[in-house]
Amino acid sequence: MFSDNCGGQNRNRYVAFALWFARNHLSLSKITHTFLEKGHTETENDSIHATMERAKRRLELYTPDQWYTAVRAARVSKQPYKVKDMTAKDFVDFKSMSNNVTDLAIDDDGQKIMWSRTRQLFIMEEDPHAIFFATAYGGVPRRMAVYRRNRRF
């Protein structure tokens, strides 16, 4: 996976727990999430959001349900975007999940984790209770000290 490196949106404990949850609940062997360098962060999602924003300017939306139609109709020259209707049971509260663990600010060696310098996150089958990180692309993953109160995460 790739994303921009915005700490408020992507490089944070909630995304880390979302990746952990996905790896453990979707039977994946490994997830690698790479945060792109500043100035090199334009992704296909940015293009999709821009297309939806342009379409929104032509419409007056009064209810959340109208967004389904607006997103489907946003793409006029290619196949329309697919929109999946979701309910509350389709969502997981990663904030609550992450609040049940101790501080994610240190690694297993007791070294402070600089989230602003984190370049990749890894969730691996070999240690399903851990979240790993690297501060260099292709660097050696280090394990975060992730434990639930009085037991491993």
Rank of each mutant, 00 (worst) to 15 (best):
residue 80 P to R: 05
residue 75 R to N: 15
residue 72 R to T: 10
residue 86 M to F: 01
residue 84 K to C: 03
residue 95 K to T: 06
residue 80 P to Q: 09
residue 101 V to T: 11
residue 105 A to E: 11
residue 92 V to Q: 14
residue 76 V to K: 13
residue 92 V to S: 11
residue 99 N to M: 11
residue 102 T to M: 04
residue 99 N to Y: 08
residue 93 D to K: 06
residue 76 V to T: 15
residue 69 T to I: 05
residue 82 K to R: 13
residue 88 A to N: 10
residue 69 T to M: 06
residue 112 K to R: 15
residue 70 A to M: 15
residue 88 A to M: 12
residue 78 K to A: 13
residue 97 M to D: 03
residue 89 K to T: 14
residue 82 K to C: 03
residue 82 K to A: 10
residue 98 S to W: 04
residue 74 A to P: 05
residue 71 V to R: 05
residue 78 K to Y: 07
residue 103 D to R: 12
residue 102 T to V: 10
residue 91 F to D: 00
residue 90 D to H: 14
residue 103 D to L: 05
residue 72 R to K: 15
residue 109 D to G: 07
residue 88 A to R: 12
residue 86 M to Y: 00
residue 102 T to N: 14
residue 101 V to C: 11
residue 95 K to M: 04
residue 69 T to L: 10
residue 94 F to K: 00
residue 100 N to K: 13
residue 74 A to T: 06
residue 105 A to K: 14
residue 84 K to A: 09
residue 105 A to D: 12
residue 93 D to M: 06
residue 113 I to Y: 09
residue 86 M to E: 05
residue 90 D to W: 01
residue 81 Y to H: 07
residue 86 M to I: 15
residue 87 T to N: 07
residue 93 D to N: 15
residue 107 D to L: 09
residue 93 D to F: 04
residue 91 F to C: 07
residue 76 V to A: 01
residue 108 D to P: 00
residue 102 T to F: 00
residue 100 N to L: 10
residue 97 M to C: 05
residue 111 Q to M: 08
residue 85 D to Y: 01
residue 81 Y to I: 03
residue 87 T to A: 10
residue 69 T to P: 00
residue 111 Q to H: 10
residue 81 Y to Q: 02
residue 112 K to A: 13
residue 90 D to Y: 00
residue 71 V to L: 08
residue 99 N to A: 11
residue 102 T to R: 09
residue 70 A to V: 08
residue 88 A to S: 13
residue 75 R to E: 13
residue 92 V to W: 01
residue 76 V to C: 01
residue 80 P to Y: 02
residue 107 D to P: 05
residue 85 D to I: 02
residue 110 G to I: 08
residue 93 D to I: 09
residue 73 A to T: 10
residue 90 D to R: 07
residue 94 F to Q: 05
residue 77 S to F: 02
residue 73 A to W: 08
residue 69 T to E: 15
residue 97 M to A: 13
residue 70 A to H: 12
residue 100 N to H: 10
residue 97 M to Y: 02
residue 83 V to A: 02
residue 103 D to W: 06
residue 90 D to G: 07
residue 91 F to P: 01
residue 101 V to L: 06
residue 72 R to D: 03
residue 108 D to A: 11
residue 75 R to F: 01
